[in-house]
Nucleic acid binder design. Sequence first.
DNA 1: AAAGATATTGTACAGGGTAAGATAATGAAG
DNA 2: CTTCATTATCTTACCCTGTACAATATCTTT
Lengths: 263, 263
Amino acid sequence: MQALQDLFPIFVPTLTDTMQTTNSHNETLYPHVSVDCVLLGIHDDLFCVLLTERRNAGTGQTEYKLPGSLIYETEDLDDAAYRILNETTGLKRVLLRQFRSFGSPHRTANKEDVLWLENASKMKIGRIVTVAYLALCKVRRMKISEKYSPAQWTPIDALPRLPFDHEEIIREAVKEIRLWTQIEPSIVFDYLPPLFTAAQLRHTYEIIYDKPIDVRNFHKKINAMEYVVQTEELQQGMPHRSARYYRFDKKKYNNMRAKLNTI
Amino acid sequence: MQALQDLFPIFVPTLTDTMQTTNSHNETLYPHVSVDCVLLGIHDDLFCVLLTERRNAGTGQTEYKLPGSLIYETEDLDDAAYRILNETTGLKRVLLRQFRSFGSPHRTANKEDVLWLENASKMKIGRIVTVAYLALCKVRRMKISEKYSPAQWTPIDALPRLPFDHEEIIREAVKEIRLWTQIEPSIVFDYLPPLFTAAQLRHTYEIIYDKPIDVRNFHKKINAMEYVVQTEELQQGMPHRSARYYRFDKKKYNNMRAKLNTI
DNA sequence: AAAGATATTGTACAGGGTAAGATAATGAAG
DNA sequence: CTTCATTATCTTACCCTGTACAATATCTTT
């Protein structure tokens, strides 16, 4: 092994140096890679995150966590994210994007989490590095079948106690989505229905950014966005002047993006 | 195991499902986590990336790769990045930031890479998920000691053949640094010496963005940046009019950032 | 003194963001 | 029917920023 290290001093670490540790069962530990999915959405005018429920075998209490699991050996991280979201919630057609990996050894600092994991799995579980994914979702569409674990849309300002560093992941996800909606506005329109009013669009931004937006200026902004197109349809059944429906023009949006990139 | 899966249907996968595969030596494979460091800098007016050299034991040819290695069991990803950079190049005091993880199974699609890895290590090497880190560096300071593998600052437009997906990682890193310098301008000043001229600053931006910047407008821009402070010192020994030195005021910068966050 | 090289400076216009008032359409209340 | 409440939509004025563009200043060399 020493000779090999001389030949490849950078890339090839020794097993003892980097990979082997033992857990409380005195088994060899290997690093694991998981994916966690942060699905954000608006529910009852509150910015919410989707948490799945599980029952604690010890205490019998209901606990919550982000949908996530370990990745397969032969799948891409993106594929793993879609698979895991689908397996844990049944959801499809959600535009997941990677936003950061979390690998602090303190992720497993809480003894409850560790105990639960080790007792539950009897597996050779070492540290877990998780790759976090993010999506903005249409809450109404997200009916989670009874086949899967129950899931709750939980306001981000009222999170229950979460395992590992899931709370930190969610906080970072919220910051990230605020950046993304500026860099790639289409994310917001993915969230909205095909036809939407100016007020719906404004309201979405208000909740994402957690601050009010001037109605009049917002209209001017919409007019400036070529890819937000007026339709002739009007909202009906409102107790006041009916609002016009707009739609998102993906072609025009992509054209605009292409122009930006060539400059 | 089945009972446990019923209790914890989401989080706990079976070994067979997710973690075990065999390689060509018919050994059990586990996922590995590595860190790769993309150090960008300007060398002879070209945007460059630091590549370390290694000699191919088979062909005897010199090959290049990003500085990177597997992480330890008990260290944070950030710590691993700093350790690995230091171990492979001896460099310290470089501000590394995580920017994305790469985990495509096609990373190891090139048979040469795989063969090299497997023959070299005789280790249980499964897939490798790598967490990529990024920094903008002062090239002049980066004298790499003879103790370490030789390293080359290589223009990003003239990359040699690189193993795995290192070329993709570098391309993404360049895009990322262009975003970051807008979101957090201090990165550019980390790169510059304590005293710098307007031309140096402008030149840095020109190379990062790969496009010319109008001199006059750039001066106006500098004046608008409170945290870029004029000094009374002048550049000396130039065969033409001497330029004024500016400095980066970290306090003012942080104040500005704090204000931005409260709005 | 002239030439060569780089540093520094001002002006005018267009566009986007912001603040704030005026008008329009609709159902509800009287 | 009239008025009111409510939300939608349009409008104007102002400021700040980005951008296009050319002349002058300072220093060294010849």
